[in-house]
Design a protein around this nucleic acid. Sequence first.
DNA 1: GCCATCACTGGGCACTGTGTCCAGCGAAAA
DNA 2: TTTTCGCTGGACACAGTGCCCAGTGATGGC
Lengths: 156, 156
Amino acid sequence: MGIDALDGRLITLLDQEPRIGVLEASRRLGVARGTVQARLDRLRANGVIRGFGPQVDPAALGYPVTAFATLEIRQGQGADVRAHLAGVPEVLELHTTTGEGDMLCRLVARSNADLQRVIDRVVGFDGIVRAATAIVMENPVPLRIIPLVEQAARDT
Amino acid sequence: MGIDALDGRLITLLDQEPRIGVLEASRRLGVARGTVQARLDRLRANGVIRGFGPQVDPAALGYPVTAFATLEIRQGQGADVRAHLAGVPEVLELHTTTGEGDMLCRLVARSNADLQRVIDRVVGFDGIVRAATAIVMENPVPLRIIPLVEQAARDT
DNA sequence: GCCATCACTGGGCACTGTGTCCAGCGAAAA
DNA sequence: TTTTCGCTGGACACAGTGCCCAGTGATGGC
């Protein structure tokens, strides 16, 4: 477990220019192609790199509004609520949490007006007692991982 | 703007098997290679597909604990707080929101004990008045986009 | 009804990258 | 000291890419 400096540089490079292949990456990093291939195989085997799927922007799909909803669940209804929320396309992720509510989910919608429809669909389910919604205005730090990768590479 | 059924199938295919190339994708979809190439170029140009960067798992990097923190900010300190949080590697994303708090951020840590250190670092800043943290226990719906892509493709 | 536009097709081309070998070498562990 | 392991640098056949082209069918403007 853990990654070294070369792993960190490789991940950072692939994050900045995902289209480059193994050969070009080996040239940029100054190591043999086989080394990059082996590192990549190991990173995928260890689960550090889950894949290279397309990163789709919901806004470009017509869903520019993002919100987070904190849900309070009736005791014992967890599984049902999970299944219900998993069936709503506008629910992009769902977590069960400690603290205020019982669940936290990320929603998107076509507009602020459309968000009402989404929320109605989300909370219109028997097991959900209460919901508090926070609409996202700005996103100063978009989902990122590189700073953490660099720290993990340094701590080795 | 908007995507059609072929775009939807292409994105879904690339999400399931990111390693396949344009040629193989064209075979799976039953269209000419040039068509897939043109669709991909258009999706990237429209910003629907942002890229194909590596999806890194923080847990595999040694950060298995995730939490969400709601922050209340002192008036006029927004910019400073943003800059401060952007400098913390464990802050994976940051949003400004309506509702309860002023900001919502996603954190990771090496352990529950380590989370205390991260939170101290996050809230140990003058502009932050109050912070409420929710630790993630389960993640029944991991960050996903395909159901939304399929809905967007259907609505065309 | 006619013509221009546009996306898709199917083909061809040179070139690059990939997957997969291998032998040699230096460092670290046994 | 000897084994083990990761990295190197080279080789090979093959597949895929980027880029070109002419032909075709559908759509929309005139």
